[in-house]
């Protein structure tokens, strides 16, 4: 079975950002730690588990701007066999539809049975490329899955949507996007880290050009909430002060 994973490399979710002087974006520099997209890491892990169970090959597809190789090698150390990297700063910062088109263009050449992706990019907060790639390839999609069962001719996947649990069945090929509860990603072992250095990383170019349909014109820190009011005292006192606030001032009850 051939499994493709759409893999985005993002700044660490613990990063404390600074704004650029123009205040149009955050600054990423040499101090920025780049990691596998947290949800993409579940997709990578799931792809490797499918390969380990039924055999096959796992190939990641990434659009990057020069910060990706270290993380891609980590995915390889986890068990990814090959990687495709389209290096283009313009495309990497492009609108989600252009990114989806570039990914679909690359995935098409792989003839994959299953295409996995994270449910969301934690940097740009987009949940766009998974379903968009499915639509561009004319194949079905099941998003935000929390369990997956793979058979020779299809998959069964479950997810939670608006508090309901939904169970889907699909034939192959199919696009699946991973939620956190899908699996527990493994830590690569040292021999696998060494082996990963020699796995093929194919640098590709794309004929697709960015559309410039979306421009980010401003970035700012969210307004700080004026909190900081502490209530101290005996249990009776603190509960009384809190209840007074919730009933009289906030009118919650």
């Amino acid at each position: 079975m051939k499994i493709a994973v759409l893999l985005k490399i993002v700044p660490d979710t613990e990063t404390r950002f600074q704004l650029n002087p123009e205040e149009t974006d955050v600054i990423t520099d040499r101090t920025t730690e780049w990691i596998l997209g947290p949800y993409d890491e579940y997709a990578v892990e799931e792809a490797i588990r499918i390969k380990e169970k039924v055999g096959g090959q796992v190939i990641t597809v990434t659009i990057g701007s020069g910060n990706e190789e270290k993380s891609i090698r980590k995915a390889m150390a986890m068990g990814v066999d090959e990687a495709i990297l389209v290096e283009s700063e313009g495309l990497a910062g492009s609108d989600p539809l252009t990114i989806a088109k570039v990914l679909a263009e690359q995935v098409k050449t792989l003839d994959a049975d299953i295409i996995l992706a994270g449910k969301m990019a934690t940097d740009t907060s987009d949940s766009f490329v998974g379903p968009a790639v499915a639509q561009l390839l004319g194949i079905p999609v099941i998003t935000e899955i929390s369990s997956l069962e793979v058979r020779e001719d299809g998959v069964t996947a479950t997810r939670t949507a608006s508090g309901r649990s939904e169970k889907f069945e699909s034939k192959l090929p199919v696009v699946l996007t991973a939620d956190k509860s899908l699996n527990d990603p493994r830590y690569p072992k040292l021999p696998d880290i060494m082996k990963a250095k020699k796995k093929p990383l194919h640098k590709k170019e794309s004929a697709i050009s960015p559309r410039g349909a979306i421009t980010q014109i401003k970035a700012a820190f969210p307004p700080q909430k004026a909190g900081g009011t502490k209530i101290e005292g005996t249990t009776e006192e603190v509960v009384s002060v809190l209840m007074d606030g919730l009933t009289t001032k906030e009118k919650i009850f």
Binding site: D95, P96, L97, F128, A132, Q135, I214
Partner: peptide, 21 residues
């Protein structure tokens, strides 16, 4: 979950500009 799943497909079909969330 439904909206996030459907919106990208609609955007592709209409070749529209997506603005998420």
């Amino acid at each position: 979950v439904w909206g996030n799943e459907i919106a990208p497909m609609v955007a592709v079909k209409l070749d529209a500009t997506p603005v998420s969330d």
